[in-house]
Design a protein around this nucleic acid. Structure first.
Lengths: 143, 143
DNA sequence: TGTTATTTGCAACTTTGTTGCAAAAGGCGT
DNA sequence: ACGCCTTTTGCAACAAAGTTGCAAATAACA
């Protein structure tokens, strides 16, 4: 699946197929949780920090990835599910952060409930971070 | 209201009444939106950066303030509504960030809807950031 | 007012975010 | 396969934010 898919993805967004970009998307695809820039730097340590930074910025602008808010202030990123465009992120699923393993995952199955704002406020988008204990850590506890 | 209330608040949490702490709480009380450390540094520029940092950390641990997620990665803080303790933050209201004025406010009137997680996940708490245009900026547009 | 534990300011350092510029590499027509 | 042109990368450099240790200053309380 991977290599071809990655090339297609990049071409869809009119991006050149460079090693770095392919590797970064590869990391996102094989990880099941959101990735921060420091995470990327560890995994792909043969690329310059700035290159990874710019790669993330590019992907973010194109709508390939979206930001995942984190309670530590560290920004994490995850692949968009496919409905995002350069101009609007239609990716309002719940993000779940495990307080044990500290991984943050996208829970696509659960979408963000509709929010009714007070009069005078206009709704653009929403980002919901739920904290708790994930399935894997839960299982470990009950060994 | 202010001075006495601030002293009471600090005493409730067994904290010494220092100038810095009183001033920081004062800023939180008079602001209607969440405050970041850089915000504090500008307003209270006669205190050392580190002192403000440690004051925020202390307040956070005691449950006097809570973190407000921000889409820029910059951490903001706001006063807790009174139900938070050292061990649990029961402060699940919606946070609203205006994309015009960039202020983030707590909307106490709107609470975070109940979220049903997939099997195996345990819910601890949730943080919901809604982005849009606030009442004030909306009004400005229609001058 | 004096003693003690806490808090503050300073110095120093780490990590993350950001920009400019020249060298390297991708895409495309031939 | 080659060369040209545009985009991307790596390096250097700097800005901003987070974090720790330690000695001096200060709050609490007798």
């Amino acid at each position: 699946m991977s290599a071809d898919n990655i090339n297609m993805l990049l071409k869809t967004y009119n991006l050149r197929l460079t090693e770095c970009r392919k590797d970064v998307i590869g990391v996102f695809m094989e990880q099941h949780h959101a990735v921060s820039q420091p995470d990327l730097e560890l995994r792909l340590n043969h690329y310059d920090r700035v290159t990874l930074y710019r790669t993330l910025t590019t992907f973010l602008n194109k709508g390939i990835i979206h930001k995942v808010l984190d309670d530590t202030g560290l920004t994490k990123y995850a692949l968009c599910s496919g409905h995002c465009t350069e101009h609007h992120h239609a990716d309002e699923h719940v993000h779940f952060k495990c307080i044990k393993c500290e991984n943050t995952i996208c829970i696509d199955a659960v979408s963000v409930p509709a929010i009714t704002l007070p009069d005078g406020f206009t709704y653009l988008d929403a980002n919901l971070l739920v904290r708790g204990i994930c399935k894997i850590c839960q299982a470990k506890n009950n060994h």
